[in-house]
Amino acid sequence: MVQPKPKRLTREQKEEKVEYFKEEIESNPVIGILDMHNLPAKQLQEIKKEMKEFAKVRMSRKTLMQIAIEQSDKEDIAQLEENEAIQPAFIFSEKDPFQLYSLIQANKTSAAAQGGEIAPNDIEVPDGDTGIGPGPMLGKLQQKGLNVQVDDGSIHVQQPGVIIEKGEEITADDAEILNQLGIEPLEIGLDLDVAYSEGELFTAEELDIDVEQYRTDVEAAASGAFNLAVNAGIINETTAETIVQQAVRKAKNLAISEGLPFEETIEEALAYAKSNADGLDSQLDLESVDLDEDTEEAESEETEEEDESEQDSDESEESEEDSEDEEDKEEE
């Protein structure tokens, strides 16, 4: 495992180390505390090479790291002391804490168990041919609750099963079974305990998020907020263009439907009127109407009206003649 260099440091060396840490704290926007107690030294060197493009990992004695934090003028940087790292190390980066955590996780590799470790997740044995011949391993797998049988000279797992649950200790016997099956349950890599950025401290639990789901949720929330603002008529630099476009579209549709002869709408208004006319025409069954019969009925009605009019005129003339005769008789 990684251990600080055992050599003694002079007072001057200690002061230089503290000053170096202090400068790194001041010059980097993100400072994290790693826990190195489960990381082999060989893997550490490999990981540091892979991460050098986006982060620097530096470690020393806890007291020197603590003094550097206390001497820094960065806002609320003292929060970094609130970590649970058994063997702490600094990590300095310009990536935001969430990106840094994701990159650290991506640089982890699987490793075999030796016994005595804590299972980071449920350890499951898949179904299928183990490639192991019949012997003591058959009984060990059965003791772990697995449904196994010998087929074609090797042990076959009939159904997948969890043999070690998350948080349980991996015993030496467990490690032997896992190694025989080729299962590497451990993750070798850096463990970010806490990260500081812009006065805020983030724990590993807070940084461990589903980035894609988080992005989807944020996009959905932004879209919903935008639609609400537009429908409510809230005008700002984000919604103004869409609200104006909607208003123009509604005004144009109103002008077209009412047949208002504006230059921008006259062509569409005529098309709209024609469409309505065509629709009305399609609803009328003109072919079923006998136009000749209708014409004859109309002419008959006109003739009757003329006859009635002439009769009324004759009666009026006769009445006038009778009236004149009566007046002549009275004069005589």
Results as ranks from 00 to 15, higher is better:
Q283M: 15
H37D: 04
I104C: 06
N227A: 08
Q66L: 14
T216E: 11
E117G: 08
L178K: 08
Q45M: 11
E70C: 06
E117V: 11
E330P: 00
I177R: 04
A298Q: 06
A111G: 09
E330V: 05
A220G: 00
I69Q: 03
S275T: 11
Q246C: 01
V218F: 03
I256Y: 02
Y196N: 05
K22E: 12
E46F: 06
K274N: 13
E267I: 14
T130C: 11
F202C: 00
T109Y: 07
S300T: 12
E168S: 15
A172D: 09
L228C: 01
E287M: 10
I235Q: 01
E267R: 13
P136A: 14
L291G: 03
V157L: 09
A271Y: 09
Q142W: 01
V289Q: 09
E24M: 15
I243H: 02
P160C: 12
L291H: 05
M51F: 03
E237H: 00
H37K: 10
S93A: 08
P261S: 06
Q213I: 11
L260I: 14
I33G: 01
L100P: 01
E19T: 11
M36T: 06
P29Q: 05
I86L: 15
G133C: 04
E15F: 02
I25Q: 04
S154N: 09
E19A: 14
I243M: 05
A175N: 05
V125G: 08
T109D: 05
I67V: 15
S60E: 15
N236I: 02
N276G: 13
K140R: 14
P88Y: 12
E320T: 04
I183D: 01
I155G: 09
S72C: 12
N276K: 13
L138H: 04
L103Y: 13
E301S: 11
K56Q: 15
V244R: 08
I243A: 04
T242H: 08
T203R: 02
V148K: 01
K274A: 12
E258W: 07
A222F: 00
E84M: 11
G139H: 06
R61E: 14
E301C: 03
V230F: 01
P29L: 06
N253C: 02
L100C: 03
Q87L: 15
S60G: 15
L64F: 14
E53V: 05
H37P: 02
E16S: 04
E331I: 14
I77L: 03
Q99N: 07
L291V: 14
S93R: 00
S110Q: 09
E16C: 00
F90Y: 06
F54N: 04
E82V: 00
N227E: 09
L284T: 10
D96V: 04
I123D: 06
V248N: 03
E187Y: 07
F21D: 08
G224F: 02
T63S: 15
E330H: 04
